[in-house]
């Protein structure tokens, strides 16, 4: 298997699907001539031309309205929202239109649309440009929310997302484009709505996704040196949420922590922990802990920013706490 970066994996997925299906086109701010603000669509404009790689005004409502409308009449747009922070400007289109049009009109409209966007802190961009509000979007039935943590998953999940007939928010992480990982050669897809065991272990379960996976794998390596074997369940899709691998793992380890980059309150961890208590209470040997971002708007200063974001030592400390 080839080792490629997250950026290359996403770029390959887009290109392969554009080659396979002429209904697929890309639209968004700076996706064309510029090549994508995170360089994911570099070279696309020259290869596919302005009709299939559409540079838009800086107008998130227009971008997503255009994508939804085009999807309703049979195209398969991949809309890029430069960062998830700008998705708030177009909240109506994500949670109020895309998520509801299929249901509200009795199934008459389908919205085969992918919204690719970038979340996450750690790049000193200040409070309005550094958020991880994935849980907000995962709150809404009708929308699917995918957030991969490895290049292989990113590629396979994005290809599935483009082929799906549902609106999908595909959240990438701003600090992970250079992350390398093994990606299978040739054509493959990964089903949406399936969690995956990314590392096996018997002592505790770490439930996580996206950036949390990267941090949790590092924490698990260190824990292993101390004789603790952590099992890591990568959610990969936040809605629909696949809890089966989580329950299976938890019934084996009886101890768990949840790691996410977003804020702890009302977060992904809140959901996971509740479901474990609801469905697997008899297996609980210790309170389940959450590792998440401190409850502050993320500051610019590097030291303060890093202090607010969840770190590997936080995960190790939480793991040790639940093993006490």
């Amino acid at each position: 298997m080839a080792k490629i970066t997250m950026r290359e994996a996403i770029s390959q997925a887009l290109m392969e699907e554009m080659d396979l299906d002429p209904a697929v086109f890309i639209l968004g701010e700076e996706v064309g001539v510029w090549g994508g603000s995170y360089a994911v669509t570099k070279g696309f404009y020259d290869k596919y031309g302005p009709e299939r790689v559409k540079d838009t005004p800086i107008a998130e409502n227009a971008i997503l309205g255009a994508a939804i409308g085009a999807a309703m009449v049979g195209q398969r747009p991949v809309a890029e929202i430069m960062t998830i922070n700008f998705a708030f400007s177009a909240m109506d289109y994500i949670v109020n239109q895309a998520a509801k049009l299929h249901y509200m009109f009795g199934g008459q409209f389908t919205i085969p649309m992918v919204i690719r966007t970038v979340g996450g802190g750690g790049r000193q961009l200040g409070a309005t440009h550094s958020q991880t509000p994935d849980a907000v979007f995962a709150h809404f039935p009708g929308l699917k929310v995918v957030s991969p943590g490895t290049p292989a998953d990113a590629k396979g999940l994005l290809k599935s997302a483009i082929r799906s007939n549902d609106p999908i928010l595909f959240i990438e992480h701003a600090t992970m484009y250079q992350v390398r990982g093994e990606v299978p050669e040739g054509e493959y897809t990964i089903p949406i709505g399936k969690s995956k065991i990314q590392r096996e272990g018997k002592d505790l379960t770490i439930v996580t996704y996206c950036k949390g996976l990267e941090l949790s794998m590092k924490a698990a390596d260190q824990l292993a040196k101390e004789g603790v074997e952590a099992e890591i369940v990568d959610l990969r899709t936040l809605r629909p949420l696949d809890m089966e691998p989580v329950f299976e793992s938890f019934k084996k380890t009886n101890r768990a922590i949840v790691v996410e980059e977003g804020w702890k309150s009302y977060g992904v961890g809140s959901e996971i922990v509740s479901r474990i208590y609801e469905e697997a209470f008899d297996y609980v040997d210790a309170p389940i802990l959450r590792v998440a971002q401190k409850e502050v708007p993320l500051p610019y200063n590097r030291t303060l920013e890093q202090a607010a974001l969840p770190q590997v030592p936080d995960i190790i400390a939480a793991a040790k706490e639940v093993l006490k």
């Binding site: 309205g65 409308g69 085009a70 009449v73 109506d92």
Partner: peptide, 20 residues
């Protein structure tokens, strides 16, 4: 039913036709 909300979607229907 969202006031003004369907205007960008209308543009989108037209984008779909333009693309086709």
């Amino acid at each position: 039913a969202i006031v003004g909300g369907h205007l960008p979607i209308a543009a989108g229907l037209a984008v779909g036709d333009q693309y086709a």
